[in-house]
Amino acid sequence: MTAQNSDNSLRLSVLDLSPVASGSSGRDALNNTLDLARLADDLGYHRYWLAEHHNTALIASGAPEVMIGHVASVTKRMRVGSGGVMLPNHAPLKVAETFKTLEALHPGRIDLGLGRAPGTDSLTALALRGSREALNADDFPEQLSDLLSFFSGEFPRNHPFQRIVAIPNGVEAPEVWLLGSSDFSARLAGQLGLGFAFAHHINPEPAMDSLRLYREYFRPSDYFAEPHSFVGVSVICAPDDDEASTLAAPIDLALLRLVQGRYSPLATVEEALAVDYSAQEREAIRHNRQRLFTGSPETLRARLSAFAKEAGVSELMITTMTHSHAHRRRSYELLAEAFQIHQSAIK
């Protein structure tokens, strides 16, 4: 996929982690997701993905396959999918049947984004998978091969699963994307002809090289005839640069807490600004800001357009975490206006 000549043609999408803010509940977070999805659909965002994380008080999105159905039911136009399903946590047949069911109910709108990380700590991963034998990440290519075979109905000869049919029958497979924050998934997605989504918000440094490798390794498939990739970026947009930077203070604190193993709800701006950070922590915050885009609509239009051009993509998936749901809504509204995505979506 090549970069577009005009930033007006840049597609924007949403990655929603269903963040839990201090003073609120997981139920509030999931209801906020449905509210944000309706807004994003009206504003012209291209797709809406739900994350899979476990055993954390910060994020309420533990069952993206459930939320996909709800989001697709309250929206009309956007593609809806997982960002992603952590395949090592699930049996490939179960994933295939879940997403064929979603595709049957919402035809032409479902994406299956797949990751190979557990989305949690090792003990929780063990509890999810129910077997120590299933904790090997090296099994991911084999799991993925089985999943794709359940979608196509074509297993290699003498494969033990070749007589198993993923139901419901007569349903097209969803779009399949691999998620990654390194070059492993980039190469594999290219070799299999799948879409590739790079998680810049997790690990920004390898982004450009991974996207280049994906394009180099790409081979056409029944899913995509040519490379399709986009980048997930963390963004906070506000009327001016200073306010956007201030609204990012809870993210600064949350990232520090994650490294320290402290999984607490997202702090308020006032709580985050009141923390007496050490010199080492302030340096960590400065480093973490490399994975976060903040600014006014004008600032972010310029920065994100330049970033997309450098990455060679025509779509960015925006994840925004603020303590206030109203501020999160406003951030997506301002971005949509800056990039005029409503006009692009209805063309």
Score class of each variant (00 low, 15 high):
Val71Gln: 01
Gly81Ile: 00
Leu253Ala: 12
Thr33Met: 02
Gln280Phe: 08
Phe307Tyr: 14
Ala29Met: 07
Tyr277His: 11
His159Phe: 02
Ala272Thr: 04
Arg77Leu: 03
Ile164Lys: 13
Arg132Cys: 09
Ala166His: 07
Leu123Asn: 12
Ala125Cys: 15
Phe198Met: 03
Tyr48Gln: 00
Pro160Phe: 04
Leu213Asn: 05
Leu128Met: 14
Ala104Pro: 01
Ile251Thr: 14
Asp222Leu: 10
Glu333Gly: 10
His70Pro: 00
His342Glu: 13
Ala117Thr: 09
Met78Trp: 04
Ala117Lys: 05
Arg330Glu: 14
Leu258Val: 10
Glu65Gly: 12
Arg187Ala: 15
Ala199Trp: 03
Ser152Cys: 06
Asp241Trp: 01
Phe307Ile: 07
Leu34Phe: 05
Thr124Leu: 05
Glu271Cys: 03
Glu226Phe: 09
Ala244Tyr: 00
Glu281Ser: 06
Asp42Glu: 14
Gly108Gln: 07
Ala274Lys: 04
Leu192Phe: 03
Phe161Asp: 13
Ala3Lys: 11
Ala197Asn: 07
Val95Thr: 11
Pro64Val: 00
Ala267Ser: 13
Ala197Gly: 05
Arg129Gly: 11
Leu144Lys: 07
Glu333Thr: 13
Glu205Leu: 14
Arg219His: 10
Ala127Met: 15
Ser278Asn: 10
Leu255Val: 01
Met208Tyr: 15
